[in-house]
Design a protein around this nucleic acid. Structure first.
Lengths: 240, 240
DNA sequence: TCACGATACTGACAGTATCATGTACTGTCA
DNA sequence: TGACAGTACATGATACTGTCAGTATCGTGA
């Protein structure tokens, strides 16, 4: 309908607008560079070091990201986009993952797309962490504390939201759904951190990625069991 | 015969040892004061403010705790001790919790002490967070990052270890047990953070504690389901 | 008119060094 | 036995260093 630009009183100055696409490109470029630097230097790099290693100056980063937290959040959004992409794949092809290897045994009902998506997400998450612990830590580490509480970093919140959308949690009130998502996110986080902390002696690289996958599947299995029963329905016949 | 004090080359100098008990008392006193200040000022108080509000000077804290992290860890250990105490109660009296209300009905085997302990721990944890989010955040927030990875703070590690001891996880390899504990800890953490972040409008205080209890029970229920099946044994009879 | 890059600055904060003070203990000498 | 000098340690205060996030300013260039 209204594709007119009329309601905008001052028409955009070409001297201003010409930067718009450039800005976007530049931003991505910076982000890429930051990821590289963080990967090399660890998640605690100072802004000065980032600027220096990038070959540019600190002001640029502050102009583009406002804040150190803004930068971390930006990297976090990138990470989320990676996860979201894999998730989208899982939406598209419910049981086509290459390595399931047990798909032949059970009945067709085992395919459970929701479960498949949960697993895909956690796999993506774990691969991310395995590939570059530093970048993962950098992105995840924007745990700004408010005046009194400790807010989860926006990365975690974002992933939790993805989770909320991906796994179907019918039979749970909305608050419960949010809690479950946050908890599941925390579970994954906890496992990842423990796993990352525990592999100093072990060689990283490809072998790490395989292990990450196993870890992810295990986590997904655990979390899946969590879900799918309504609430207090486990009843007395649980044992034998 | 030999009432000589000879065997001790240098007998402990009273001028040194006389401080030992004083130091301990003082440490506890400082810790108490810190908890109070943190409760008032939030988890991000500067060391200067802590010293000032405590009526003493910064150097004292550095002498006693070495580090800001040391201080946070100390508060964390205090918090852990609170949890551990409740856990010990649960060990002692398996089904004697005041509100279970179903203890009379079933056979003794329904009491599942492991599950009871899990619940007791999570309740203690949640109560802690509900009572003073700031102190909780302060204690939990000692997330030192190593050179590259992000280690979970020692508070979380400690609670995970408690969890590992409290819940029986037979049928899981040791690595898996550690992962599960870390994950469960993370689950609780995630839920707590979400819950704390989401109650700005809601009044705190006693009502908060009741809600905290409900939350804890819910979490315990979820986590319990996670456990107790060996690995891939969830099988077909899961439903009805 | 806007982005860019550089330099230099501010302010906050963790952590340290130093000093003067107080006090219970120890060994020695009267 | 008691007084006294000296010791070992905690205390609190002040002032310092170093690091780092964030800002202000300037000249350049399209």
């Amino acid at each position: 309908m209204n594709r007119v630009t009329a309601p905008r009183p001052q028409l955009p100055d070409g001297r201003s607008t010409r930067w718009n696409k450039h800005r976007e490109e530049r931003r991505l470029e910076l982000l890429r560079a930051v990821r590289h630097v963080v990967h090399e230097e660890g998640p605690e790099v100072s802004m000065d070091t980032i600027a220096q290693q990038t070959g540019t100056s600190k002001t640029v980063f502050y102009r583009y990201f406002g804040d150190r937290n803004g930068l971390q959040d930006a990297v976090g959004e990138w990470a989320m986009s990676v996860i979201a992409r894999k998730l989208a794949d899982a939406y598209r092809a419910p049981g086509t993952e290459e390595d399931t290897a047990e798909s032949g045994t059970g009945p067709a009902t085992t395919a459970e797309p929701s479960r498949e998506r949960l697993r895909a997400m956690i796999r993506a998450y774990a691969e991310l962490g395995a590939r570059s612990p530093a970048v993962y830590a950098f992105a995840a580490r924007s745990d700004v504390v408010g005046p009194h509480q400790l807010r989860p970093g926006s990365f975690y919140e974002g992933v939790a939201e993805l989770l909320l959308g991906a796994v179907d949690l019918d039979g749970l009130d909305p608050a419960g759904q949010r809690q479950w998502a946050a908890g599941a996110m925390g579970f994954v986080r906890g496992c990842m951190d423990e796993w990352l902390a525990g592999r100093d002696a072990a060689g990283g690289g490809t072998r790490g990625e395989h292990e990450a996958r196993q870890l992810a599947d295990r986590i997904a299995g655990w979390l899946w069991r969590t879900r799918n029963v309504t609430e207090e329905a486990h009843g007395p016949e649980e044992h034998r």
